[in-house]
Computed example of a mutant assay.
Amino acid sequence: MNLVFEALSHPVRRKIVKVLKQGPKSAGDLAELFDLTKPTMSAHFAKLKKAELVRTTRQGNTILYHLNASVLETALSDLLDFKQGGSND
């Protein structure tokens, strides 16, 4: 859960997640939304992948990013449990 919230702590990564809610996007399509260098975008993608918030598939030379909503749902559920006094570590 910590990796998920760490990944979501940055506004660029939150925007990527929001865009991916609409469906898979290529790395290039996502990068066009930001005025950032390719290495910076790659670092954001890597952080989201490490937290398992996104998964990738390859179509030819194109890498598509997909939102892994189940991880997000689990993290939000854990957060709500925590807020209600639960003890999910």
Rank of each mutant, 00 (worst) to 15 (best):
L3C: 06
Q22T: 15
R58N: 08
L3R: 05
V4N: 04
L33W: 15
L72S: 00
R55S: 13
T74D: 09
H44W: 05
D89Q: 11
K38D: 02
A43K: 00
A27K: 04
V12K: 00
N2L: 14
N68K: 07
F34C: 01
L36G: 01
G23K: 03
K18G: 10
D89P: 06
I16P: 02
S77H: 12
K38E: 01
L36P: 00
G86Q: 08
P24F: 11
K50C: 11
L30F: 06
D29L: 09
N68T: 10
I63C: 04
N68M: 08
S26I: 04
E73L: 12
L33Y: 15
A27E: 13
K83A: 14
V12M: 00
F45L: 06
N88G: 07
L20A: 04
I63S: 07
A27Q: 13
T40S: 07
K25Q: 14
D78W: 05
V12S: 02
F45A: 01
P24N: 07
A46N: 02
F34G: 00
G23M: 04
K25C: 15
N2C: 11
R14Q: 14
H10E: 07
R55H: 08
S9L: 07
K15R: 13
D29Q: 14
G28C: 00
L3T: 09
L36V: 07
